[in-house]
Computed example of a mutant assay.
Amino acid sequence: MIVIDAPAVERLLSWPALVGAIGDMFAAGCVAPARHHHPFDIPGEDAGTLLLMPAWAPGAFLGVKIVTVVPANGTRGLPAIAGTYLLSSAGTGETRAVIDGASLTAWRTAAASALASKHLSRPESEDLVIVGTGALSARLAAAHASVRPIRRIRVWGRSAEKAAAAADRIRADGLEAEAITDLEAAVRSADIVSCATLSRAPLVLGDWLKPGAHLDLVGAFNPGMRESDDAAVTRSSLFVDTREGALHEAGDLIQPIRAGLIGPEAIAADLRELCLGLHPGRRRADEITLFKSVGASLEDLAAAVLVYERFKAAENPSA
């Protein structure tokens, strides 16, 4: 068994390879049982969440990710998400690697958004707005820029200081970025809007989205959270990472479904259908598209296998 820490994950992964690996895994398929989702009480603050996410490709690899989400960690100067990935042989059950889960999750989450963007955003998209200032903000900027010719990136957060820090991290990756305070004005001109927050109230309004915009919703991972309003949902063509996950956990879709504004059939396609060409993705230049992800264990498995295989190749370059 090998241990692959966060710096090694950072060293081994690249956006084109990871986006491709996740797309290949969606097309090929794997066994991905529903994830276990357990709240745990934390005295004096919002509850945390424990997630257990298994997946396996028969005869190849089997993995499970153990994740905790603690919303109040921001007040402690700690990331909201922590986790570990355990990768095993699906033939013998032997453990192959223990991989840093937080870094793996950040990479695969942003890569899934980039994969969706390849199918849903306009190919000429240049203007990106990032909503949220957490660890995912720079990842999402880099991932979207790997599949579209992004020239302008603006970052908005409730804290101007944190937005500035997030813009600094994006610039450190060699991309142009600035912090902003007027979210509405930014969204109205954006080609792509990518949100990664723990918001319980809409941040991006549908009336702000211009024709042809693509809205990428990454945060709001349970039914009580949402980052977009009803107008954004009803104005858009809707896509998800997995239907089962979205219909059980995505507040941005569950809340308008419960209100009778849309039905489950409003979801045009999931990533598997897009990757297999069963749905063409964007149909018109003026179409507004919305992609909602809640995370899929398939994505974790694809990322973990890529990390493991690259680690082994680096250990034995002549093999």
Rank of each mutant, 00 (worst) to 15 (best):
I180V: 07
I180A: 04
D182S: 08
D182C: 05
E184M: 04
A185R: 12
V187A: 02
R188Y: 04
S189D: 07
A190F: 11
D191L: 02
D191S: 00
C195E: 05
A196E: 03
T197Q: 14
T197I: 12
L198N: 11
L198K: 08
S199Q: 06
S199K: 05
P202Y: 05
G206Y: 02
D207W: 01
W208T: 01
K210E: 06
P211Q: 15
P211W: 14
H214I: 01
L215E: 10
L215A: 11
L217G: 00
L217C: 03
A220E: 04
G224V: 09
G224F: 15
G224L: 14
G224T: 14
G224S: 13
D230H: 07
D230L: 07
A231R: 03
A231Y: 01
A231P: 02
A231F: 01
A232Y: 02
A232C: 08
V233I: 06
R235P: 01
S237Y: 07
F239M: 02
F239R: 00
V240Q: 05
D241V: 04
D241K: 05
T242P: 11
T242D: 15
E244W: 15
D252Y: 04
L253K: 12
L253R: 12
L253T: 11
I254Q: 11
Q255F: 02
Q255G: 01
Q255N: 06
Q255R: 09
I257C: 01
I257M: 11
R258D: 10
A259F: 11
G260E: 10
G260F: 06
I262R: 00
I262E: 00
G263S: 07
P264F: 15
E265K: 00
E265W: 01
A268K: 07
A268V: 08
A269M: 15
E273Y: 14
E273W: 14
L274W: 15
C275R: 09
L278E: 07
H279I: 06
